Amino acid sequence: MSDNKLVSVETQQEYDITSGKSETRIFVKMYVSAVKNGLIADMGAERWQTLCVLASFMDAEGRCYPTQYQIASALNIRRETANRRVKSLCDYRWQGRPVVIKEQARSNDTQRWENARYTILPVSQLAIFDGQPSDA
Rank of each mutant, 00 (worst) to 15 (best):
S33F: 01
M43A: 06
T50M: 07
L75H: 05
L39A: 06
L51Y: 08
F57E: 09
F27H: 13
S73P: 04
E10C: 00
V86L: 09
V32A: 10
R25Q: 09
S56H: 05
M58V: 07
N37G: 04
M43T: 03
L51T: 08
T11C: 13
R63V: 00
Q49L: 10
S8W: 04
S33G: 05
S33T: 13
A74S: 15
I17P: 15
D16C: 09
V35H: 11
T24V: 15
M43P: 06
T24H: 08
K29R: 15
Q49D: 12
E46C: 03
R79I: 04
A60E: 14
F27K: 14
R63I: 00
R85F: 08
G44S: 06
V53P: 04
G20L: 05
S56A: 07
N37Q: 14
I71S: 03
Y31T: 05
A45P: 06
F27L: 08
R63D: 02
E80F: 02
A45C: 06
A41H: 11
N76H: 13
Q49G: 12
A74R: 15
Q68I: 03
T11N: 13
P66W: 02
V53F: 02
Q49C: 08
A74I: 08
G38Q: 00
A41L: 10
N37F: 01
A34K: 10
